[in-house]
């Protein structure tokens, strides 16, 4: 087998394993720690409203009277086949409730996931051309600041400035949940901007560190001595190396964007999965919570897998068989 193909397959298998473990985390977090889904759905001070018969009956109805491993197996098969079961109170199919919001959130998040690294790269180049210079100082300071602003404050400021004061974008998203992708994207501009502002600092940090390191390396120094201009050094020589630590941070980056999506959606009342998650959590709709959390983990792991493959393509050192750890 081609060694690169073998490496990719390895990564794929590893991702599968991590997804499996993530399902365990979700299961443990929502069912094992509190006892089971029913206990999770009932806080301690509300137990007075149930008799033991109620519990027995509901456990049987929800299939919770079976061994934990069987339940985990079922949940896992359900999650992997995207059959998320029924809601606890209304007995609706979970997937019907989350399908359109999921698509809308994916549209918004995927733009942020693609654009944020590009912004980070642009800022990283600007900062690396003269490390310690004024531009570097401004960009580094600005990202440190944006990193320190809660995303719900940033989002609210954006609404006030861009929608209410400047009137550039709508303040309220007047679209139905099942709006076409085009409509959703058109109205995603401001939410995506808010996501980028809170997400870019993290990537910029990684990139800048990588850049400085690469620019100080021997082979860049040799190129510098042979008269290659500084901007060329930054873009052609340092950037490809510096991008690698940034790509290695993809899992955290995607996870951060998803956390951000939940908050940003709440500010903009964006018809997405974040609002559904908040509702499900407050109502203790465990099957819906499990489904959404699992999908989020799936997105993170998928993003990370793609980044790993990109690193394989970019970095010859990783391809060496000895480094397969």
């Amino acid at each position: 087998m081609h060694p690169i193909l073998a490496l990719i397959l390895r990564r794929l298998a590893l991702s599968g394993l991590i997804l499996l473990l993530a399902a365990v985390v979700v299961f443990v977090g929502t069912e094992v720690l509190p006892g089971d889904a029913l206990d999770a759905a009932i806080p301690a001070d509300e137990r007075i409203y149930y008799t033991e018969e109620d519990f027995t009956r509901m456990r049987a109805e929800l299939g919770l009277d079976r061994p934990m491993l069987v339940r985990f197996g079922e949940m896992l098969i359900g999650l992997i086949t995207f059959d998320f079961g029924k809601t606890l109170v209304t007995r609706d199919a979970v997937i019907d409730n989350i399908w359109h919001p999921m698509i809308n959130s994916m549209l918004m998040a995927s733009i942020a996931i693609v654009v944020t690294p590009l912004v980070a790269i642009a800022l990283g180049i600007a900062a690396a051309i003269k490390p310690g210079g004024r531009l570097d100082g401004i960009v580094s300071g600005a990202t440190l600041f944006s990193y320190s602003m809660p995303d719900f404050v940033v989002a609210n400021i954006f609404v006030m400035v861009f929608a209410l004061q400047l009137g550039l974008v709508p303040a309220v998203l007047l679209i139905p949940e099942y709006a076409s992708a085009g409509e959703v994207l058109k109205l995603s501009v401001l939410p995506v901007m808010a996501l980028i502002v809170s997400g870019v600092a993290y990537q910029f940090r990684l990139l800048r560190a990588g850049m400085l390191e690469a620019l100080a390396s021997e082979f860049v120094e040799r190129a510098r001595l042979s008269g290659v201009p500084e901007w060329r050094l930054v873009i052609v020589h340092a950037l490809p190396v510096a991008v690698i630590p940034m790509l290695n941070g993809t899992a955290q980056f995607v996870a951060g964007i998803i956390s951000g999506v939940v908050v940003i959606e709440a500010v903009f009342r964006f018809p997405g999965i974040g609002l559904e998650l908040i509702r499900a959590i407050i109502q203790r709709e465990i099957p819906t919570v499990q489904a959404i959390t699992f999908l989020a983990a799936f997105a993170v792991i998928l993003g990370n897998l793609l980044a790993d493959i990109a690193v394989l393509a970019l970095d010859p050192r990783v391809r060496r068989p000895s480094n397969g750890h």
């Binding site: 991590i18 473990l21 993530a22 509190p34 792991i301």
Partner: peptide, 22 residues
């Protein structure tokens, strides 16, 4: 692998579901 799995669940989501439990 366990840390990978836990970190695959976005922090805010993990906190939120644990609030349900604890």
């Amino acid at each position: 692998r366990l840390t990978d799995a836990m970190m695959a669940v976005p922090e805010l989501l993990l906190i939120a579901i644990l609030v349900l439990t604890f």
